[in-house]
Design a protein around this nucleic acid. Sequence first.
DNA 1: TCCGAATTAATTTTT
DNA 2: TTAATTCGGA
Length: 762
Amino acid sequence: MRYVPAVHLSLETLNGPQRDAVVHDKGPLVVFAGAGSGKTRVITYRIAQLIAQQGVAPYRILAVTFTNKAAGEMRERLSSLLAHDVHDIWVGTFHSTCARMLRRYHELCGVKRDFVIYDDADQKAMVTRVLNDFGFDDRRYDPKKVAGAINKAKQEVVGPESYPSNDAWTEVIKKVYTAYEERMTRSGALDFGDLIYRLVRSVESNELLKRELASRFDHILVDEFQDTNRVQFRLVKDLSEQKRNLCVVGDDDQSIYRWRGADRRNILDFRREYPDATIIKLEQNYRSTKKILRAAHSVVSRNVDREEKTLWTENAEGAPILVVRSADERDEAHLAVATAREVVHAGRKLSDIAIFYRIHAQSRVFEEALRAANLPYQVIGGTRFYDRAEVKDILAYLRVISNPDDDVSLLRIVNVPTRGIGKTSIDRVLDRAAKEATSVWATLEHIGDDASIASGTRKKLIGFVSMMNALRDKVAGGMGPAEVARAILEETAYQKALRDEDTPEADARLENIQELLGSMDEFENEAETPTLSAFLENVTLQTNTANDDSEDRITMMTVHAAKGLEFPVVFVGGLEEQMFPYHGYDAGDDPDELEEERRLAYVAFTRAREKLILSWAALRRVFGQPRINPRSRFLDELPRADIEEIGGAPSPSYASQRSSGWDDNSGYQRPWQHPQRSRSERPMMGTPRTSTTPARKSSESYIDRSEVEVGEDGIRMGMRVAHAKYGVGEVRGVTPGVPPKVTVSFPGWGTKQIVASFLEPA
DNA sequence: TCCGAATTAATTTTT
DNA sequence: TTAATTCGGA
């Protein structure tokens, strides 16, 4: 049977390489797709072409995207190309696709059909518990780092049994990893990494499953291939083994998930794995102006470890890139507001504007300014709705109802709202559960005969158990997720407890719960399988809450979240050293990290279609502490002819500010005095003050560059200083004030704020 | 065991 | 800076 497309595929609207990729027949194919080169169009056209021209059955096509959003968009685009059967195409993220397969073949994969998915917070809770069981100090063994090690092992398809232990640290990891896996199994839970790792292991160890899955798809397409990690590539290899119709699309310059195990070698060396692979390069950009492309290229091309390629465009030359100096982060936010107003004044919509930043923490100031200016906005990502405590509580109840062995969720809610089950009792229950190697729930079920627990507490625990059982019966009786949630609110007295609090915070929480109930109603109406476990899976794998595009508003997000998107006007904030390129406290001097930051800048810049505004602040408060950092090296890597500097020269060193005097009226504005007013005193986008910036030579290493003078009394970023008690450490920040303080990282002591006079150069 | 006060930790980036 | 956690007194 042949599937007929609703719309004729107008292949003639594609350029040469695009068309080649779309009509490529059989065998491995790698498409290097530069930013804005019509990548998504190629993938969707290719899928449509496979179905319409080659007669491939939709359900035999698997398209893997990086985010749920991208999956949704692909589906949408496909449905406009194909009349029907779009639904049968497997479109999803690695995680959702694997979850689906694991459920379908749960017996062969050795997982419970109703497994719950643990997010990072759940995983961390589980790791902490295991650490405590072993009596390991969770300050010495940071649960996050331990979890990171476990995740990394899974990315490399290394199970606990083959985890190498060569020293004290890895020995602990191996032990914890082993126990963690047992606990997870007992809890009927899989973490994010498991979804892919478990499927790969099952496929590779089980002939039956392998035969089934390796022949299931005629064509596999992977988007954003530069951000896949080892397991993911291996899975895709396994699944395409029989037909070898594997098409991967990506851009190594946009690889920004190295920290999550992404390996650019996957795309760069694809040919090594598939020597017969066809290579297609998409280098014509349809999105941005020439100036924007040149700027982006001139930054990313400084990377050493990179395939040289140059995007070109027939688009207009465009407006200069604005490089704007702000006094501080609030001033920067005002600049964003002024920019937005100007853009709207020029007849554009708010939704044409995006504000990007390196880290979420930067969003707050922008939000405040936009709210004050009455400009509607939306924030993508950040503290997610489903991360709110009250929402997690209700979800934890639902999860325990769906899967009582889910220890992490159970422990979260056993005393929420407070029902007199204290830490001591819980500890006793945990001990017993560990001894009996069962889940906490299983222990609770027969807690009545445990004489070591006070009879009053026992009664409370028994009451909890029967309450949960009653709720579970309702689900068994066919009650839908939303109604169950309402029953939970009533019967656990959760709602009542919040009402009794009668504080604005509690009201906000109640509102969030209402929103949760609303989204559950919506889920029940829209999902094809509106079951409780389907809802829970959706929640865990769904990142940003569905945002409707109907409203005209500014969009804010991290640069990571911006990948794959485009906006006519892009405002990037925080272009200072330490911020962007970001350099955290515990970060080393890793040139690879700097290269990734540069790719990140490349991604940010190439989102812009017409106008790109880059902003840096002379002073920025971090944790409420003012920090002075030089402007980002990336700004100095831009082609001078394509940019327009506004607001003055590169950050004056702290010392030179001093020498210019605190009370004079020289041009320099002291941001900490009148940050709000300074904005209007400066020309905005029109005639800029000519920059006096000498092109600064960017040095190779992080540390070198950050040793720009910002110090007080000769103290500089990155220099080594000595302290009587803490010994020698490295300067991580300078806080002006009386007395001036310095942030110093001391090996073995962590990061400390020290009054400058107690330090000596070392 | 509970509540408010005091301390201190937190910031990459996401599925 | 804010949010979470610990502390100390009832």
